[in-house]
Write a protein that binds this DNA or RNA. Sequence first.
DNA 1: AACCTATTTGGCTAAATAGCCAAATAGCCA
DNA 2: TGGCTATTTGGCTATTTAGCCAAATAGGTT
Lengths: 110, 110
Amino acid sequence: MASRINTKHEAWAKVIKAMAHPSRLFIIEELHKGERCVGDLTEMIGADASTVSKHLSVLKNAGLVSDEKRANSIYYTLRCPCVMDFIGCVEDVLSANAKEHAHILKCCKK
Amino acid sequence: MASRINTKHEAWAKVIKAMAHPSRLFIIEELHKGERCVGDLTEMIGADASTVSKHLSVLKNAGLVSDEKRANSIYYTLRCPCVMDFIGCVEDVLSANAKEHAHILKCCKK
DNA sequence: AACCTATTTGGCTAAATAGCCAAATAGCCA
DNA sequence: TGGCTATTTGGCTATTTAGCCAAATAGGTT
């Protein structure tokens, strides 16, 4: 049978892949609070400015953020704040994992 | 300043990274409809069984799916169906991208 | 026990990604 | 213009990932 993976799944993956990095999730979380410029984010993340810039360009290419130049800085904005809603679900997954782990420990102790 | 990236962001990234692949998103979508065994998914995806098995183990390690052996097959289940809700938001991002792209084309034509 | 069927693991290669440094660029200000 | 600040790009290396094949494993069945 022909593969049922199609462009739709690839498009989804592109966006989700752009989110799949600790620094980029930090950026998303931070931008959810409000726009930030590259320098601020760089200082908060504590990595090389070029590294942060590249993370921002990954997010921008995926359409997750947009940028605007003002004064002598570039300000980034989260385009679809709904992406942060997803984190709640991710936390559900993590707490389910933690619960299961605790359960396994409990069983083994007996 | 010390980095503000912490374990939280790494844990989030782990889960999201596990989702960030077309085949794995297909699997998630399919499991959202109901449990499926490896053979069924393999046929639908049209890749090597070992490849699909590895995708499933990525999802399982992230805690996104669980498996249960029954008869002579292993059935996989989506543990937190909420992950599919997120796709709606991803679609929002994609349609915002499409809209912007159309807008740019329109501007250039003039 | 020997045999199936279903699934996983190991080994390999090709491709993608993250991060740093150094250099280029862009716009502001003297 | 020349210098300053902020940001991006290029180049490199180390690491991770995807996918295939072949081999191993796990249970059920005869």
